[in-house]
Design a protein around this nucleic acid. Sequence first.
DNA 1: GTACTCAGTATCTAAAGGATACTATCAAAG
DNA 2: CTTTGATAGTATCCTTTAGATACTGAGTAC
Lengths: 121, 121
Amino acid sequence: MDSTPTFNVLVPDCPSREIMQRLGDKWTPLVMLTLASGPLRFSELRQHIGSVTPKVLTSTLRTLERDGLVDRQVTAQVPIRVDYELTNLGLSLLEPMDAIRIWSEKHAAKVMAARELFDEN
Amino acid sequence: MDSTPTFNVLVPDCPSREIMQRLGDKWTPLVMLTLASGPLRFSELRQHIGSVTPKVLTSTLRTLERDGLVDRQVTAQVPIRVDYELTNLGLSLLEPMDAIRIWSEKHAAKVMAARELFDEN
DNA sequence: GTACTCAGTATCTAAAGGATACTATCAAAG
DNA sequence: CTTTGATAGTATCCTTTAGATACTGAGTAC
């Protein structure tokens, strides 16, 4: 008697597929990995990440907040202060995300070499 | 004396960042996980994945091939047969990708609940 | 009132993704 | 022979997402 619904990304209409596809959007992993070392303000996040525009960063953060992965704390001081922090759910995603990061860094040279070879032909 | 170049996705211009962002494009994880159980033809991939259009599947596969993650085998029979298969490099990415898949399936319900809560307010 | 900081919006353009229809190849059926 | 059918894609058009850049609102300091 297992009442837990099962999710399977390989089934087209399974909600887990859409969630996995969201996790891999362009800035989500970078935002999460940047928040891994602790809460940051909006402007700090921008500076750390570097090439993201405010519009896109805002929408990425809103989606993360909506999905329960990031918590947004507004402090009414002057100027206003907004801190972003990983939730427990967000923290639980950090390890898988970091595995992707480590793979990317470890195999970047191989991927670049493969690209050169491919583009030659 | 370490001559290995170091990559860091948190550095804006590091190639590993672009590679990580590519890995998380919309269909890449799904294609790789679908190929995890063995080689598949183009049409079989389409059927397994379900909702992907041929144009997008083709471009996803070309990118994967270019990055050295997938191998494309053409067999000149009639009708023509094209098989796609993970390379060793692609296989090495499977474990991190699968960790993301497992997380998505395990926490899908929590994410959906967070969304409902967020949308109420 | 002017200036400054912070956290965003607004507007416009460019790139990526999606729906749908079409093509090339060749073999077997009629 | 002409038609049908399978496979692996392209081509075309349209919508959605991302990027560049400029601007806004709140509020204290000067």
